[in-house]
């Protein structure tokens, strides 16, 4: 099991454990973390599972695909350098303890 820390816009931290191989989005929904809507269920059609990944963890992630990159241009809250769709990040041991921030709005 891997620990994931979601930081809500009001700075409250929500810690959840996730199964290796699941997506971070899946972990968020399984634990009903508010602010991750993931309406399309991971088919990259909605951009409502937008997160900002804490800088120190960015280098541990595979870069976004071209499709994810395009969807990141369509997020409700501003896109930043550390923006990702969490449906596209697979939980692994090396992400244990990863910190991600939830944007103000997803829709």
């Amino acid at each position: 099991m891997t620990k994931i820390v979601f930081i809500r816009p009001d700075s409250e931290a929500v810690e959840v454990t996730a199964k290796v191989g699941d997506s971070i989005m899946h972990a968020a929904l399984a634990n009903q973390v508010p602010g991750i809507l993931a309406e399309c269920g991971g088919s990259m059609a909605c951009a409502t599972c937008h997160i900002y990944v804490d800088e120190e963890w960015l280098s541990k992630l595979n870069p976004p695909s071209s499709m994810e990159n395009e969807m990141l241009d369509a997020t409700a809250s501003e896109r930043r350098d550390n923006s990702r769709l969490c449906c596209q990040i697979e939980v692994s041991d090396r992400l244990d303890g990863i910190r991600v921030r939830i944007p103000e709005s997803q829709i």
Partner: peptide, 18 residues
């Protein structure tokens, strides 16, 4: 409602869902 399949799933999931 995560996992409901009313809009399908996978590559053919409803294009007009949003």
């Amino acid at each position: 409602t995560f996992g409901h399949l009313a809009l399908g799933n996978g590559i053919h999931m409803c294009i007009g869902q949003m």
